[in-house]
Amino acid sequence: MKLEHVPGTNRGTVVLYALSTCGWCGKTKDLLKEMGVEHSYVYVDLLPEKELEEALREVERFNPQGSFPTLVIDNRKVIVGFREKEIRETLG
């Protein structure tokens, strides 16, 4: 699965699982950019079938609801949804 890399300040390994059509995902992506945090993101809905299933399982491992956006920091900390305050506090 190919992740898009966005350069910025290193705050650990920050991965955003998003949907290209979703409003809150867009806001989360914009926030990370505005904060200048180095991260990678993937639009799960645009993946080919096999990779999409793989990505969904990955998301479900961190967030059993399998919802978007799911933000994973250092493979440990998980923020589900556009929780602006929490994202700023965690990565600011």
Binding site: S20, T21, G23, W24, C25, G26, D45, L52, L56
Partner: peptide, 27 residues
């Protein structure tokens, strides 16, 4: 602006799946 973006997502999904699946969930 936010709402129009969601409407775009609904139209994308309508093209993709043949029905207006929710833009914020994976169909």
């Amino acid at each position: 602006a936010f709402t129009r973006n969601l409407v775009r997502g609904l139209l994308v999904n309508e093209q993709r799946y043949g029905y207006m699946a929710c833009p914020c969930r994976i169909a």
